[in-house]
Design a protein around this nucleic acid. Structure first.
Lengths: 197, 197
DNA sequence: GAAATAATAGAACGATCATTCTATTATAGC
DNA sequence: GCTATAATAGAATGATCGTTCTATTATTTC
């Protein structure tokens, strides 16, 4: 890895954290450069535009997410344990990768839902992939006989992610420490309802 | 209502819609003035600062929300019908009050969760109030004998609002028309689980 | 280690930001 | 209808935005 790629990664590392706090649009080349003791133009040279920077931030965050959440969870035993691992890994994510501003994807989703463009397109793809991972794990749990055959995998993925979003909302905006335990309770209810009789 | 108050309301009306699309921070005095054929300074004179404008936008949105969602829903019969009305009114909200960018409170929650200040404080209060309204309706449903006595009202409010957030996410970011029906299905499952045996 | 190349800095651009000032026009009270 | 007051416009402020250009350092490559 040459010097250029090295600093590019360092920039993206910092940028992911900053974007989680101020949003993809709230990111500023000047501020990011200042935090890294780089000149604006020096930083800018690594990215051809702010839009390209935003996209690379999303890509960097996604690869970290896969590394820290998805891959380890998919290593869990097939079926309910794997579904559970995906849920718990998601909850633990903010601790695994320092994200001062909470989940970047949640923030970006609200920011970009009305701004057409490549950044939005990428985010949509990432979110679809994530829901597919969840639904896939549910499907496996059905095949394993852990969940009832009548379980709708997409609906279950919807329900689980909704619980995560609410957990994020309550924890971050309301600063309510009960958010995580409430999310766990909701998740257990969902599991119980899907569990084979 | 004098002329001043009249234009102030007109400004806020437009500002609520604009903020739902670009966020409270994304709002610009110049752009807002341009959309209303006002001068920047003429508009600015109605609000002492941008921060005060943001707060008044939140207040205006909240009073519209109460008018269109909360009040009509609370007119529904006590118990499950009222819980159901709150849910359905929330779903119908974007149609009742034109909000090009989806729910302003969802957008503001993500934007402000890391920005301490009076705007954040107000939003926290509004969201607490909303969760209290939901929990209160659930409590009434328990008292009416519609829901089991073991139902946890705060947990139920958490679950319902999570479903709403996910509906918003899927509908707005993924542009998935199935979001609303999925949300309804999730809501019915929650009701079924809480219903007295 | 010299030559070629990549990485960074610095200054400047026009645009737009929130905000302030002064001037002008429209409303309100009598 | 005149006067006092409120509402709006216009111009200017300094700051910061993304971006481009040119120059100066580092780092590779042979």
């Amino acid at each position: 890895m040459g010097k250029g790629e090295q600093t590019r990664q360092a920039i993206l590392d910092r940028a992911v954290g900053l974007a989680s706090a101020v949003g993809l649009e709230g990111i500023t080349i000047g501020r990011l450069a200042g935090e890294l003791d780089l000149s604006k133009s020096g930083l800018f040279a690594h990215f051809q535009s702010k839009q390209s920077l935003q996209i690379q931030i999303l890509e960097a965050a996604a690869s970290r997410f896969v590394e820290v959440v998805v891959k380890p969870a998919l290593a869990a035993p097939r079926g309910e344990p794997r579904v559970r691992a995906l849920f718990e890994r998601w909850l633990a994510w903010p601790k695994a990768v320092p994200q001062p501003g909470g989940c970047l994807f949640v923030a970006a989703s609200v920011e970009l839902d009305d701004r057409p463009g490549p950044a939005r397109d990428l985010l949509v793809k990432l979110q679809r992939d994530w829901l597919d991972v969840l639904a896939g794990a549910v499907r496996t749990a059905i095949a394993e006989g852990h969940f009832r055959r009548s379980t709708d995998p997409e609906q279950f993925a919807f329900d689980i992610y909704g619980t995560m979003l609410m957990c994020h909302h309550v924890s971050r905006l309301l600063r309510d420490p009960k958010g995580v335990s409430r999310a766990r309770r909701a998740f257990e209810s969902l599991l119980a309802a899907a569990r084979a009789a």
